[in-house]
Every structure is written in structure tokens, then in C-alpha cells.
Amino acid sequence: MKQRRQTEVAIAKSTPKSPRKAPDKEMVWIPGGTFTMGSDDHYPEEAPTRPVTVTGFWMDKYAVTNKQFQRFVKATKYITVAERSPNPQDYPGALPELLVPGSLVFQQPLHPVDLQSCGWWNYVPGANWRHPEGPGSSIKGRENCPVVHIAYEDAEAYAKWAGKVLPTEAQWEFAARGGLEGAIYVWGNEFSSNKLPTNIWHGEFPWQNLKSHPPRPESVGSYPPNNYGLYEMTGNVWEWTMDWYRSPPLPSKPKACCIPVNPRGGTSEESYDPNFPEIRIPRKVLKGGSFLCAANYCFRYRPAARHAETVDTSTCHIGFRCVLSN
């Protein structure tokens, strides 16, 4: 704890001063600026790289925790999407046993499997933020872990209650980079599988777990912060952004003379998955990767990485954090 505090003090001294006092002690000032967003070297949906400017804003140091979300639920009596019965009209052809409250839970195979199958996911009735692995599991002892099984609507409701909003994709990526222009990871360009400063999969995904505990989110603040004082911006849990998903991110690469300021994503109509035209559920952009990302499967524990997720989806590896414009 003492070392973490010393690190935060050093970061605070080197970060440009905010125009006013922090809204709360769990937020840090992100000074804003122009940076190169995206990547031309990894997944196609990250390209093209383009110059983007964001203005200064406040951001939560950590992903929202179980303790914080529990406080919100107690104050508002909010019921998450995973705790509600799905509307059969929204899911034509769905099996009756799936039209019950629940969420997607990772179940580790015992042997190598086809990585195209996604067979490690199971819809578990009764799984939700209170019961991360389903009935019989709880968040006791995990109060400081990121809340999971959060659909977009849930994250948005919490943010509104807290007097904040969800970040745009550009805000999120700028903050995650921590001023390291063009770096592959939030900590730079070096990769050491023996000492990674983030919670990702160790071993061959999804069957070989080399960690001493089951794969799951770890307490916030378990790893060193980036240069802006933000913790676990990659790995641990995916984080919702407010932007509708569009691929490629921009209709065309902007000219150097016309750098967009505080850009937003596409429209809800553009966000539908063209591979499944029968599913009319729009998608938002997730950022950051999770504890289930691995070099052999999901190389998305990078600031530029992005993933499309339908707004009704909740899983054991999706959470969020909030921002506040000045």
C-alpha cells in the first residue's frame, strides 16, 4: 500500500494540473491531447491508425468494484439485465431453458479445443453480479474485484447515479496509453511472459491455466498504474465505452489538417453485425481485454484493441469504469 501511494504521488506531480478539484478521490485528471489512435499491425478492426484529439477529463482510477456496485443497488433497488427474464420476442428461436435470468460464465476445458468453437462459454441460469459463477458462488471476499456480468444498460445506469458517464472509445484509449505514443502495451513495447503487469491468461488458452488460482478478475490496484495513475486498463475485465461499434472505425482516414476533436463512433444502425442479419441488437465498443486474453487466442490486452459486444450481453469478464468531463 505504501509503495502504491508513493507511485500515485509521483504520477500526480508529473501530470498537468487539473482546472479544478477532483470530483472524488477515486478519479484522476487526464490532461487530453493529440495521439495516434488504433493500430495497423494487429487486428483489422483496429485500423487505420489516425490522429485524434481529446480534451481533458476525469477518469476513475479503477474499474467499478463489487462494493461500489452493491452500494448503487442498495440505494436504487436496481435489477441488472442478467437478473431479469429475457423477452422471448427479442430472441426468436431461443431454447426455453435459455429464456431465464442468467449470464455467460467461462468453464475451463480439460484438454485443447478448437479455438473457433468458443466452447468454453456456458449460459448459466442464476449467474449475475452477485453470483459470478452461478448459484452457490458469491462476491464475499471479492468486494474490491471489478463487478462483472454487467450489460451496457447496467453500466450506464450506475454512471448516471454516480453523476458520471461512460468514456468514449477515444477517451478510453488516450487514457490507457498514458502518454506512451504508439506503444503496443500500456506499459511500453516490451513483453515478458514471466512478469506481466496485468491480469491475463497464463498458459495455453483455454485449457491450461498456469496460475495458482482459477482464472477470474483480481482486486483492483493489484498491478502498477500507467503514467496517468490508472490501474488495470488492460487485462482483468473488458470495459464498456459509450460508442456504437463501427468497423473500420472511420469512413476514411482524416487528413492531417482535419484532426477530429473528441470523436465519437458510428450510429446504432451501423453497429449491427452483418454476419448475423437476423439479430437486430446493436453493439457497443469494449476496450482493454480481460483475464481470458492470451497470446495464443486473444491478443487484445492493448490500448488499440477493440471488441464489438451486443448491448444485452453480460459475461464473467465484462465490467466498466466512468469518466467526467471538466
Rank of each mutant, 00 (worst) to 15 (best):
M59I: 07
Y185L: 09
F57N: 02
S85F: 11
H317V: 08
F72H: 04
V261F: 03
L286R: 00
T7F: 00
E239V: 00
Y62S: 01
A304K: 02
C258K: 08
C145N: 12
S271N: 06
A175H: 02
N262C: 10
E143A: 15
F320Y: 10
Q108W: 06
E270S: 07
K255Q: 13
T315Q: 13
I11S: 02
W238P: 01
E83M: 15
V237A: 02
C293K: 00
M1D: 11
E8A: 06
R216P: 05
G102H: 13
H307A: 08
G288R: 07
E133C: 10
K284R: 10
D273S: 07
A183T: 02
F35V: 11
S117M: 03
S85E: 13
F35N: 10
R216Y: 09
G141I: 03
A63H: 03
C258F: 12
V64W: 09
T80E: 05
V165A: 07
Y272F: 12
W187A: 02
Q68I: 03
G93Q: 11
A305S: 13
C257P: 00
P217M: 01
T49N: 12
V147S: 08
N275P: 10
N226T: 03
R300T: 00
N199R: 01
S325H: 01
Y152G: 09
L104Y: 06
N236D: 04
N296W: 12
P206W: 14
P214T: 11
F205S: 04
A10P: 00
N122Y: 09
L210D: 12
L95H: 14
R302W: 00
Y223S: 00
R130M: 04
Y297L: 06
H131T: 14
S193L: 11
T53D: 07
T310Y: 08
D40S: 10
T313A: 15
Y297M: 07
K21C: 05
C298W: 11
D312W: 05
R246N: 03
F57A: 05
L324R: 14
N144T: 07
Y301V: 04
A94S: 09
G319A: 06
P197F: 01
S271C: 05
V285E: 02
N226E: 11
P88W: 15
P263N: 05
V311A: 15
G56E: 02
T49S: 12
V73H: 01
D114P: 08
E204V: 08
C316N: 14
L115W: 07
G235F: 01
A305P: 10
A183K: 07
T7N: 09
H111L: 11
C118S: 10
F276Q: 05
T315H: 04
G221W: 13
K140Q: 14
P303T: 00
